[in-house]
Design a protein around this nucleic acid. Sequence first.
DNA 1: CAACACCGTTGTTTATGAAGGAACAATACC
DNA 2: GGTATTGTTCCTTCATAAACAACGGTGTTG
Lengths: 267, 267
Amino acid sequence: MLMQQERIENGDGYQTVERAFELLESLAGGPRGVTELAVELGLEKSTVSRMLKTLAGLGYAVQPEKRGAYQLGPRVLYLADRYLDANRLIREARPVLERLALEARASAHLAREVGSQFLVVAKEASPELIQVASAVGGSCVPHASALGKVLLAGMKPALRMRWLQEPLQRFTEKTIVDRAALADEFELIERRGYALEAGEEHLGVGCIGAPVRDAGGRWIAALSISGPLRGTPFKLDREHIELLLAHARALSAALGYREAPAAAPVG
Amino acid sequence: MLMQQERIENGDGYQTVERAFELLESLAGGPRGVTELAVELGLEKSTVSRMLKTLAGLGYAVQPEKRGAYQLGPRVLYLADRYLDANRLIREARPVLERLALEARASAHLAREVGSQFLVVAKEASPELIQVASAVGGSCVPHASALGKVLLAGMKPALRMRWLQEPLQRFTEKTIVDRAALADEFELIERRGYALEAGEEHLGVGCIGAPVRDAGGRWIAALSISGPLRGTPFKLDREHIELLLAHARALSAALGYREAPAAAPVG
DNA sequence: CAACACCGTTGTTTATGAAGGAACAATACC
DNA sequence: GGTATTGTTCCTTCATAAACAACGGTGTTG
């Protein structure tokens, strides 16, 4: 097969499979025609046509009408359904996210460490018209998002180091790129039990993050609410922090975490 | 590449892609090792190992620990999320299914025609311990399930014929395989507005199906409750039929369907 | 109404990239 | 400490996927 295009990262990994998923993820953006996709991905029309036919045969794509455009097929639901079945965290989180988004009038997200990334594994969009865009399955920045900072703060310092080895990218003037300042930040988050982020990743967008604990008390995931800092009811204030913490505690409880009984008041 | 195994259906379709998805769907059943999968699918260990690495690189599989077994990755959630975004029917159906399953104490399903199949596109498991097994993304039998019969009953007779061309498979002694009897059945379903099925596909399992209508009144999907005919509160009785119909009407209304005003009583 | 432009599909050919087989490195288990 | 089993990596080979061009539709336009 002649590869007229540049093949940069071909260390290993099945080229054909990678292309199939590229195609599928393009389809995820809405119905697409063969020619359109071929141009978008720099492939041959015939390749795309045959690939889509394969995907359609498997149910991961559908072609509503003969000789027409393709779109995502319902078989993707099967995989997701099975994934959720195996992940108690996400299953338990769904209703919590729904209530949280509604009450906070902000977008609610759940993230956790998967492989070597921090990924958003569930979300509920804000009921407000204006909301921050995000996608399930996307990754989040370790040092510049409330979700990432909570996940890092919950790790043993040795593990945390491995996440902060690479240079810390600066997204805005508020991004914390100083390692000493970040260390203080983690200490603060661990002590207070929540993280704040105001424009560190995107200017004008704020986020509050809180840990989700498993039965052993470990911080295994992060729950957050986020939204524009102006124009919606969402604010980085005490009320929203308490609301988030309440729901994070509820989710932790659903996972079997029992809070330590409050210390008896002295005297 | 030497294909020592029989390659029966290789008309077209990318072999590598088909294998990748076979692998993924195997993983959907739970964590699997490389060797295990290789045996299960009749592939070479090396092939499976490389394929899984590719899938892991894309996020569709994960290997929780080095040199360990693989499982499904969170990227599958992304595709499903986008699919749902594009499908108002399923989005609106989810809360309806939840309530319906809880109130009927039975499994609730939503099915529709996709490509050339009737597929379950959403479900909510029964709150009862004993429940019928089913999977989102699976297909349902046109002539022997309540879902299938409702979908067929809602079609124009000409279209319906195309679904019933092949010989009608008999699953149990109750399966309707006589075409005249089936025609009567469709007429009945259309008149009553719901379908009953008792052991036609699996002995001991019953199902009630009702149509979901779009704004134009067309039957675009089928909603159902199903469960064992003994051992749970689920029954094929008037109470459950009315419950299902109420939720099906609610879903239709959410999709913009306005019921015709009841005819004024005569006299 | 014919000519055109566009789309998705389908042959055919070729060398590329995936499959095979075996050896390799880690574990876990006697 | 040996042994069995796991997942990974080499290397060779040829079957397979990519390219390219021609085809058969559909809708549009002069």
